[in-house]
């Protein structure tokens, strides 16, 4: 199903404030809306309050590589998983929500 998971990290020299949408191809960053940390996962419905508290409120603020949601609002409206360097804004990999993306060593 997810051919995108196999997609190699594309040439970092070629990204230039652009994001590779798994569905639409390389698109300008302006088409996307940042939707935050993609490493947090909604707990099961019967999880305790602490679990939901973490899901709703607690976020790391990593310096370096981070996995994030970028919503392609002005395109296909899909949530794109993006491995981005918060220091340099380099993008190492993108994929669908189902993909597990390789996060480079910082």
């Amino acid at each position: 199903m997810n051919a995108c998971a196999m997609r190699p990290a594309f040439n970092r020299d070629k990204i230039m404030h652009q994001i590779q949408c798994p569905w639409c191809g390389v698109r300008d960053e302006a088409e996307f809306q940042y939707k935050g940390d993609a490493t947090v996962v909604r707990p099961a419905d019967d999880a305790d309050e602490a679990g939901f508290f973490r899901y709703v409120y607690l976020r790391d603020n990593p310096k370096g590589w981070h996995t994030e949601w970028w919503h392609h609002v002005a395109g296909c409206r899909q949530f794109v998983k993006v491995v981005r360097n918060t220091l340099t804004h380099e993008v190492a990999a993108t994929g669908t929500p189902a993909d597990t993306l390789q996060v480079p060593e910082s």
């Binding site: 809306q33 939707k35 909604r42 949601w69 919503h71 609002v73 409206r77 899909q78 949530f79 929500p97 189902a98």
Partner: peptide
Amino acid sequence: AAGVLAHMDYHSQVVWP
């Protein structure tokens, strides 16, 4: 209007695919 649509996108694509 736009926010609810995005809220639905998130939940259908990410939380309950």
